[in-house]
Structure formats: structure tokens, C-alpha cells
Design a binder for these strands. Structure first.
Length: 841
RNA sequence: GGGGACGUGCUGGAAUUGGCAGACAGGCUUGACUUAGGAUCAAGUGCCGCGAGGCGUGCGGGUUCAAGUCCCGCCGUCCCCACCA
């Protein structure tokens, strides 16, 4: 009589025992190689989503596999608890974010436990608890001390009616209006804290030390956006110019010389064709250079640009707009006096905020020149084309060719390549440098990381402002700067901490006089940049982590999570690690040596899951109905992990059937039979071939084929049992290996079968991964397809060790081959050992 | 506009190095067992054709004895960046 499969009993039973025994506690053990498996931590929104399960289950299965392979595995879990969603939920519900977050975490812990994952809960971290954010603050101070944190004015969205700044998500609609009073927002300069991510731009472009998906590396590379070219200095013509030493390039270290304006160009070879300049409307120098006659027009244009949304401004197909400043610059290579315009197609945040415009060879400059009737002078002549004429050109020519109208460089050949790889361009840059007119230069799209948030629910920025001594960090012995709970965290548009009657009042660390705290909080990506370090020793109080633990466990060997963080968290954490390395806090160049991304689980309607669409799949319901093991198996089976797919509520039946059939195979009362030696050899072959395949697939994160491999083997086991294999030593070996192979995937049923059915020693999860018997896995006979002219005509079953000549002879003797040959003799016979034979007629 | 990924039966997907296309599932069809079934078991299921056979991995070319896989050119879907000088 078969015992029923009852996941509702088995699963909680083993979870409780594993917990009580500390089966998943990970401690330093120098005798074993370590493996730090990390999966991205959830945001405590209140409910574990099926997407969390999809991300975490294979990560857990692989961590378990690595453990069985003999590694000492650390697989921790925690909560990324600060941030806007919690604050917004609190505003809506009136419940304090701390109360709400702690409740949510409590509920999610239970959901996470129901997965049966091997998390070491002793190492849990919660980023909104003072024991954690004390060190987030401490890290900020270390970065500040290294000169990597600085305060700068930066444009933010500002509502002129409410007289306050707005967060990005408080700005609504295409016209970008204030969520409360509907007034269109404007950009306003506000002092904010930044981290110098740009200092590591070049290093972050190097990926030699890490095994990360090409996709992520490409995304990061594009985001960093390195451009090679040259900087060129233009003198400004006019009496009003004294100095522009306050002119600061936004990110990049350009040379700053008095009475000159520096531009960046990727095409210094077109410099002779620069017939005007364009400044960004926000350019600080405009105040000085604009002629009295143009002041009003320039101011009007600036106001209009400030009002425009980024989306409007950045629309590629928008007609060019701009205003003449009344000022002129001197083209340094030919002395031409060229007008300076302002236009919103030049961005203050990239390069130097000013460009030299070469309309003949740049599409945007061309459109601008045509609209405002500015001169177009071709300086690159494409090979084999009629001579370009600025008056009649219909489009800019941006390719290579021979330089013309370019003084000493006439006749020089330039190609399409960028930077130093273009000899013509390099020659011009070197010539400029020799004359002091410019030099080779590099610029990036990457901007420094703005970490200030005018919000309550975040780690306080541990800085103090004194009238006398400016900004200074909170003395480290005073950390943490506790986030006060008695704050009106309702939306006023102001930093809530600013409204607290006493919190911001403190004393200056330098003079002891009255001073104020920074009332902005940190971006939550700051918290998540180092959480993998806190897992090492969340109990440790003398530093962010215990060095002993760091030295044993770091770096993270396998990091799993969504690709949506490619340009945020995954950049920030690399930056953080490198900056901490330079501060002597961490070691090595990268925090996570291997990264793998899972795809997304869509709703059954093939749309992104959302409450409003009503297509959300609740894991708790599934676990209740099928048990966690079935849900785990289905999540690993139903799609290629890195691709993801739409949920299919029927499809899970297949996994449920597999689990039940497995249970039945192990627990059925079967009379021992007497199988033929061939059957038993076949059984062993199937077991060891599957083991080999599954081992390979675990190594390569190919989880769906692990399950299909096990399903196939199960079918084979049923056939072998039918053939009388039950009771044999081979049968016992098969069950023994099968239970261990499924242990990482379906940990509860595997444990139950291992301990209570096979009667083996607890626990299956501390067993070694079975080893492949290569001899047993070898095929005795193989089926070789026979093709004639590439088309399948027959199949031969031959002994595995059959020689090429034997196979060839058999193939040619085949009836259907003879029929195809029609008496002709084959032109060529190709025998691919053990794979295929192709006869060419 | 730039960058990237993908395109295989009704569906999810499989196919280690260029070597039997469609493994394993879901669904569907038929049958068995059953008071009943989202249970279990058995058989079938790429398309066309009565058949021999032919066709078949988005479309069109190419390389090769052999292409889902490599090369060239299109088409489509999705993602990221987007007036980046």
C-alpha cells in the first residue's frame, strides 16, 4: 500500500528540524573551500512575490549543490528596508514606516522559510536598523575623508507655487507639473551631496576580474559612455570677458585657462569647419558674455529651457531652437570670428557645456545652421564624390575622407575611427597640443552619484554644518546618527527632518559651537552597496564587518538577481568596493566575481504582473495547494532561467505529477523481480548519464534541463522496475543517487525519502554529491543516422566501439541506401565517429 | 538615431564542437480504471499527402558532405540609452 504524499506534513516538519539543528549555519572552516552565494535581497513591501521565488529558488538549489560538492557555502538573506515605497505606504496608511516595515519583514521571513531555502538566518541584516545604518553612515564618512563625497549645487525639480523642491515621482505628466498644485515645475539649483563615481569610470570599464554576463557589461559600458577625442581652447572675443575660472566642467577634468572656453570634440579634424559655437542655456559664462542688446532674448530662452521637461528637451526630432548671445569666439586654427549661440541641444551635464559647431559634418549643427542661416564650410571631402559645397549640401557628412580648407592639414586622410585609432585625427590633436591650442581628451556620460534625498525614510547623512567651520563629519564615536521616530513624515515637500524641532540642532565637531545637522537622507542604493559585507558578521560592533569573516568569505563567488540593476546597484556596489579598497577597508578589485541574471515571470496574460491588471500569482496559495517542493521544481523547469516566461497555471501540474510519481516510485510496495543483466546495465547507464548531465547543468545555471533530465530518468526507472529491477543493488544505487540529485531542488521530499524511506543517515543535504561512474555511463550500442546527400535514409544500431570501416560497410549495405544510390557508386562517404554517416552521390 | 537580446509545433521549451530538429513538460485526441476527478495508467500528437514520399527552426541569399547553430542582407518583437558634441 502506497503511503500518500503529504507535503503539508513533510515540509514544516523538516523545516523545523533543519532550523533546530542549525543545519544551514555557515561558519568559518579553513579545512573546506568556501563559496559565498549571494542573491539580491528583497524590499520588505509586505508580500513575497512569485518573482522573488523565481530568483531565489535556483540560487538556493545551486548553493545546496555547491554544498554537496564539498564547499563551505554561505547563503544569507536580509532586507533592503529604507526607501520611498515604505514612506509612501506609510503616508497613505498613517502607520509609521518603522512599524510597518518591521511587520512586513516578520511576515516575509515566514514566507521565505516556507521556501525551504538554506538561508543562515543568524546572519540576517535589515538596512533600516541602527546597527546597520550606523555603518552606512560610517562608510559615507570614509568616502568623505577620501575626498570622494562632496557637496555641490545641482538642479532639482522645484515648484514655484509651493516654494519647495519635489522628488522625481512627485512631478507628474508630460508638462511636468506639481502633484499638489498642478503648477509646472522648474529646475532649481540646490546643494546636494555627491559621490565621485566618475573617478572610477575607467576602472569600471575593465571586466577582466569578473565573470559577468556580456549584457550587463555592455549596459555598464554604454552607461559610462566613454568618448575619446580632443579638447580645444577658444578665445572669447569681447570686452566683458575677464576670467572664467569659476567655470567648472560638470564631471570631467578639462583644462581651465583664463579668457578661454574649452570645448570637447570627437572630431578635432573638423576644427577648420567650426563656424559658430553653441553654449548650453545653463552655461554660467553666459551672464558675462551676453551683449546688452541680447540680454533679454537670452534670458527669455533660458527661462523657457528651464521650464521644459527633460523629455521635451531631449527629443531628437524636435526642431532646433536657439538665440544669439551677441558674443563671438575666435577659431584658434584660422582666426575666424565665430558667433556664440545658446541652444537647448547642448547639455550642461556633458562635456564642457559648450560645443564648437561644425555644420558641414554634424547633423545637429547642420540643422541649426540651416535654420539660422549660419555658414557651412566643408572640411572633409569624401573619396570619389563631387566636391562638397556648403551652400547646396542637403545633409551633414560625418564620414572620413581627405581634409580640405584646413590649412596645413589639407590632403590629410581621416577615417571613421574614434580617438587615437584615427591617424589623421591624432595628428591634428598632436599639432594642437604643440601649439597650446588643445590636446587629446576623454569624456564620459557617467555622472557623479547624487545621494541626497529630501525624504525621511533613509539613513541620515552624518554631516554637520557650522557657520564658522563649514561642513564636517559627525565624529565617528557619535555614530549612529539615529533617525528620529517622532517626525512628521507626511509630505510637505521639505526634508521631514528639517521640520523636527530639535533633531538638527547639534554642536560643531571643530569648535563645539552651535551647528546644524544635514537633514537630507541617503539614497537607499547607498545601503545596498555594502549589504553583502554586513552578512559576514551582523553581530559585530567594532566595524562594519569582522575582518576574520571577510578574509574567509569574500569575495562573493556567485551573485544572482535581476538585470534591471545593471546601471544602478551593480554599478554602485562596484564603485563602493573600489573606493573602499582605496581607503584600505576592502581587498581585491571586485566585490562579486560571478554574476548571473534571471529573467522575469510574467502573468498568464503575458503582461508584467501588477495588482491593477489582476494577473499576480501568489506563491503562498501555490505552496498551500502543491507544497513548496512542487513550486520550486516548476519555477526551475518552466522557462530558461535567464529568459523568464509567462506563468502557466496548468503547467505546474506537470511538476506536481513528477513529484508525486517520484514519491510513488520510492514508496510503492513492489515485489522484487529478477531483471536481465542488460536491464540492470541499462539502468546504471541511465542513472550515471543523467548524473553527468545534471552536474554539467548545475555548473552552467541551466536549471530547466536539470528537471527534464530527472523527469526522463524517472521514466527510465519506471521502465526498469517494470522489467524487474526492483530489489537489485543497481536499483538501490539508482534510488540513492536520485534522492541526492533532487535534494537541491526539492529539499523536503528528498530528505523524507532519504531518511524515512531509504533509511539513510540524516541529512541528505550534508551528503556528498554523487560521483559519475564513467564506465557505467558509457553506451554499449549506439544508433547512427545514415544520410544520403544530407538526408536521413536509415539508422544503424552498432556496438559503440564499431570501427569506421564496419559502419561504412553496414551503411552501404543498407537497403534504403542502395535504393537511393540507384546503382551509382558513392562519390564520398563521411563518417563522423559515433555520430553520423553521410553518403554523397 | 545608437547599443543589446530574441525569433524553433497549439503553448513553455530541448538540441554540449556545424552532425537524427522538436527531448522534457503543458494542452489536445483516444482508451482503461472509477460513484466522481484538476487523481492514476496506456497509446497518439510538427505540417502536407491514402501512400511512397515531400516540406519544415521569421524571410531571402551564401559557405559546407552537412546549418536552428557560421557569414551577408532584410522583417518582426522586446529591453536599454537617447540632440552625449
Amino acid at each position: 500500500m502506497t503511503k500518500a504524499y503529504t507535503p503539508k506534513e513533510i515540509e514544516p516538519k523538516w523545516q523545523a528540524k533543519w532550523d533546530a539543528d542549525g543545519l544551514y549555519n555557515s561558519d568559518i572552516d579553513e579545512s573546506r573551500p568556501k563559496h559565498y552565494a549571494l542573491t539580491m535581497l528583497p524590499y520588505p513591501s509586505g508580500d513575497l512575490h512569485i518573482g522573488h521565488w523565481y530568483a531565489m529558488t535556483p540560487s538556493d538549489a545551486r548553493a545546496r549543490y555547491m554544498r554537496m560538492k564539498g564547499y563551505n557555502v554561505l547563503f544569507p538573506m536580509g532586507f533592503d528596508a529604507f526607501g520611498l515605497p515604505a514612506e509612501n505606504a506609510a503616508i497613505k496608511s498613517g502607520i509609521h514606516p518603522m512599524v510597518r516595515t518591521r511587520d512586513n519583514i516578520q511576515r516575509m521571513r515566514g514566507q521565505l522559510r516556507s521556501m525551504g531555502a538554506m538561508f543562515d538566518w543568524r546572519r540576517e541584516m535589515v538596512s533600516c536598523e541602527p546597527e546597520y545604518y550606523k555603518w552606512t553612515e560610517w562608510f559615507f564618512i570614509q568616502l568623505y575623508k577620501k575626498g570622494l563625497a562632496y557637496r555641490k549645487k545641482s538642479p532639482v525639480d522645484f515648484c514655484p507655487h509651493c516654494n519647495t523642491t519635489l522628488a522625481r515621482e512627485q512631478v507628474w505628466g508630460d508638462d511636468r507639473h506639481c502633484e499638489r498644485c498642478n503648477t509646472p515645475v522648474i529646475k532649481k539649483e540646490l546643494s546636494q551631496w555627491f559621490l565621485k563615481t566618475t573617478q572610477y569610470a575607467d576602472e569600471m570599464l575593465r571586466y577582466e576580474d569578473i565573470d559577468w554576463p556580456e549584457r550587463v557589461k555592455t549596459l555598464q559600458t554604454n552607461w559610462i559612455g566613454k568618448s575619446e577625442g580632443a579638447e580645444v581652447y577658444f578665445e572669447i572675443d569681447g570686452d566683458s570677458i575677464r576670467d572664467n575660472s569659476n567655470l567648472e566642467a560638470p564631471n570631467n577634468e578639462f583644462s581651465n585657462i583664463e579668457d578661454q572656453i574649452t570645448v570637447f570634440t570627437t572630431r578635432p579634424d573638423t576644427l577648420w569647419g567650426a563656424t559658430f559655437m553653441v553654449f548650453s542655456p545653463e552655461h554660467p559664462l553666459l551672464e558675462k558674455i551676453t551683449s546688452p542688446q541680447q540680454k533679454a532674448a537670452v534670458a527669455a530662452y533660458q527661462a523657457q529651457a528651464a521650464r521644459q521637461s527633460d523629455i521635451e528637451r531631449e527629443a531628437t526630432d524636435k526642431e532646433k531652437t536657439g538665440v544669439f548671445t551677441g558674443a563671438y569666439a575666435i577659431n584658434p586654427v584660422n582666426g575666424a570670428k565665430i558667433p556664440i549661440w545658446i541652444a537647448d541641444y547642448v547639455l550642461m551635464s556633458y562635456g564642457t557645456g559648450a560645443i564648437m559647431a561644425v555644420p558641414a559634418h554634424d547633423e545637429r549643427d547642420f540643422a541649426f545652421a540651416r535654420k539660422f542661416e549660419l555658414p557651412i564650410v566643408p572640411v572633409i571631402q569624401p573619396d570619389g564624390e563631387p566636391l562638397l559645397d556648403g551652400a547646396t549640401m542637403e545633409t551633414a557628412y560625418s564620414g572620413g575622407g581627405l581634409m580640405i580648407n584646413s590649412g596645413p592639414f589639407n590632403g590629410t586622410s581621416v577615417n571613421d575611427k574614434k580617438g587615437k585609432d584615427n591617424p589623421g585625427l591624432l595628428a591634428v590633436a598632436e599639432w594642437l597640443e604643440a601649439k597650446g591650442l588643445g590636446k587629446l581628451a576623454v569624456t564620459y556620460k557617467l555622472r557623479d552619484w547624487l545621494v541626497s534625498r529630501q525624504r525621511y525614510w533613509g539613513a541620515p547623512i552624518p554631516m554637520i554644518y557650522c557657520e564658522e567651520h563649514g561642513w564636517n563629519p559627525v565624529p565617528e564615536e557619535q555614530l549612529p546618527v539615529i533617525l528620529p521616530e517622532d517626525v512628521a513624515w507626511k509630505p510637505t515637500g521639505e526634508s521631514p527632518l528639517k521640520l523636527h524641532p530639535t533633531w538638527s540642532k547639534t554642536s560643531c565637531p571643530v569648535c563645539g559651537g552651535p551647528a546644524t545637522r544635514e537633514t537630507d537622507t541617503m539614497d537607499t542604493f547607498m545601503c545596498s552597496s555594502w549589504y553583502h559585507l554586513r552578512y559576514l558578521s551582523p553581530w559585530y560592533n567594532d566595524g562594519p564587518f569582522d575582518e576574520k569573516e571577510y578574509n574567509y568569505w569574500m569575495p562573493v563567488d556567485t551573485y544572482t538577481g535581476g538585470i534591471e540593476h545593471a546601471n544602478m546597484h551593480l554599478m554602485y556596489t562596484r564603485f563602493f568596493h573600489k573606493a573602499l579598497r582605496d581607503a584600505g577597508i576592502t581587498e581585491g578589485h571586485e566585490p562579486m566575481t560571478q554574476l548571473r541574471n534571471q529573467g522575469m515571470v510574467l502573468g498568464e496574460d503575458n503582461e508584467k504582473m501588477s495588482k491593477s491588471r489582476g494577473n499576480v500569482v501568489a506563491p503562498d496559495v501555490l505552496v498551500d495547494y502543491y507544497g513548496a517542493d512542487t513550486v520550486r521544481a516548476y519555477l526551475m523547469f518552466f522557462a530558461r532561467w535567464e529568459m523568464g516566461s509567462a506563468w502557466d497555471s496548468h503547467g505546474i501540474e506537470g511538476s506536481a505529477r513528477w513529484v508525486r510519481r517520484t514519491w510513488a516510485l520510492f514508496t510503492d510496495d513492489v515485489v522484487h523481480g529478477s531483471a536481465s543483466p542488460a536491464t540492470l546495465r541499462g539502468l546504471r547507464r541511465a542513472v550515471h548519464q543523467t548524473l553527468k548531465k545534471i552536474t554539467h547543468d548545475f555548473e552552467h545555471f541551466e536549471f530547466n534541463t536539470i528537471i527534464s533530465g530527472l523527469m526522463s530518468l524517472l521514466n527510465e526507472l519506471y521502465k526498469a522496475r517494470e522489467a524487474g529491477a526492483a530489489g537489485s543493488a543497481e536499483w538501490q544505487e539508482a534510488l540513492n543517487i536520485y534522492a541526492r540529485m533532487m535534494a537541491p531542488i526539492t529539499p523536503h521530499i528528498a530528505e523524507e525519502l532519504w531518511v524515512n524511506v531509504l533509511g539513510k543517515k540524516y541529512s541528505v543535504h550534508t551528503q556528498p554529491w554523487p560521483t559519475v561512474d564513467e564506465q557505467a555511463a558509457k553506451d554499449e550500442e549506439i544508433t547512427i543516422p545514415v544520410q544520403v546527400n544530407g538526408k536521413l535514409r536509415d539508422r544503424l544500431t552498432v556496438p559503440a566501439e564499431a570501427s569506421e570501416a564496419e559502419i561504412k560497410a553496414l551503411a552501404l549495405a543498407s537497403e534504403s541506401v542502395q535504393k537511393q544510390l540507384e546503382g551509382h557508386s558513392p562519390k564520398k562517404v563521411i563518417v563522423v565517429q559515433k555520430r553520423l554517416i553521410n553518403i554523397v552521390v
